[in-house]
Design a protein around this nucleic acid. Sequence first.
DNA 1: ATTAGGG
DNA 2: CCCTAAT
Length: 523
Amino acid sequence: MRYFAEKVTLGSVEHGKPSNYNSEDETKRKNVVELLNSGNAPHGTGANMYSAIGDQVVWDAKPLVQISSYSNAKMSFKETEEPGPRNLFSQVRDNVALDSKDDDENSSGCTHRSTTKNSFKPAPCMGDRRIRKVLASKYWKVATKWKEKLFSRNDVDLKADGFDKKSFYKRQRSQRNFPFKKRKFFDLNCESNSDGEISGDSCADREMPSVAGQHSPYQSANPHVRVRIESFRVPELFIEIPETATVGSLKRTVMEAVTAILGGELRVGVVLQGKKVGDDSKTLAQTGICHGNNQVDALGFTLEPNSSQDLRSATPRSSPSLVRRNTSYPHSRYPPARTEAREGIFDEPQAVNNLGNSAESDRGSATSPTDLSNKGLADSKALVPVSALNRETLAVVPVRRKSKHSEIAQRRIRRPFSVAEVEALVQAVEKLGTGRWRDVKLRAFDSVKHRTYVDLKDKWKTLVHTARISPQQRRGEPVPQELLDRVLTAHAYWSQQQAKQQLKHHHRRHHHHHHQPETRLLL
DNA sequence: ATTAGGG
DNA sequence: CCCTAAT
């Protein structure tokens, strides 16, 4: 059987670095590149990935044949939160975590401590703790932690820190319901010293190149640029494996595929306001990454093939053959020959007790369908607009589409509600009714970022419909009749309530009209 | 930002 | 799921 992995999300990666580092202290970007490029990183066994079909977690020992019977089964893989054997995922994060820590200590920077490849030193105590948190998917909390560390160690006034938290909370909340339009895929904040308020302008002032050169990183200006990379995605993978293989070997194969991609054929690119930043020697300040108010939204990172070489030759495997598309990944090329398998191999796990604990990316694939006629894929190397750049990048931490007209939003990927989710939704609606989707969201899907209240409202709509039609006409994973019954009951109940409310209001209005026409309608 | 509905 | 008018 053949699996099509659409994407693999790496989770969150964070990194902090003084914004005034110069060409010789340009480790920031390089570190990211290196950690992604370190091909000889001890590859994980993949044992700490878990697989699931629909909502059912399948374990390593289970033969694929047994699970291949699922009709429209969707296989998903996700790194486990268990410590377990270190795999590439943790490798990546370990490295970043360490790097961040190092920043704390040598924030004065300058010394170019080139994090050599293969330098996968075991994470120290502190690092471990942080990593554990990362593994627990408390990404934003971790970020806060890191900042606290950064600031305290750098002996910077605490106001900045306080501000920071607020900033985080605020963003956290605003992001929650608008994954796409409102979401910021990374953060870039400039610290201010005196007032503790953020201000792009003031920040820009402090970071002006000429001045920055004189500034000491230790002074209160705390010229740090923090970048938060929500996730990197590996767009597409083709995996071929016999049905007699075990789930464990499947995982291993997937792990190998992912590792191969991350193992040394990628480089990180920086995109600012839609343009690829080519000059690595410029400082962040010079580039303008720290200026202005809105530019915060204009920074993005890309993973690109390191060279235009044919990548297919890079992954020679014997028994479980692994096929990977070459640079033209994202789209077309492969005709929809295997559409059935392609559907969602790498959809979100959403397994068992999903609901409320999976940190996921909101948007489907980073592989923009803005593609289509992708002709020269391995050509453009120069400064190119993102649109064109997307065609050859493996993954893109979505860059904020600024220009209202140019970029077109991508349709979100389909994420069928699991029975568990339906259960949660029903329970919430039974309690809150059908007119408070925002509350429903907060109550039952608060931590599930890809389900907006609009989604929940829509799902309820379809649930009501589903409950009304015959079981034969229903599609998708069958929803227990018991739940559908509750849907109808709740729907009936709250419809009545709503009707009553309407009547009351009508009465009030009429009353006032009859007796005191001049008063306001609502009192 | 939310709600409510049609597409 | 998306798109929007109306709050």
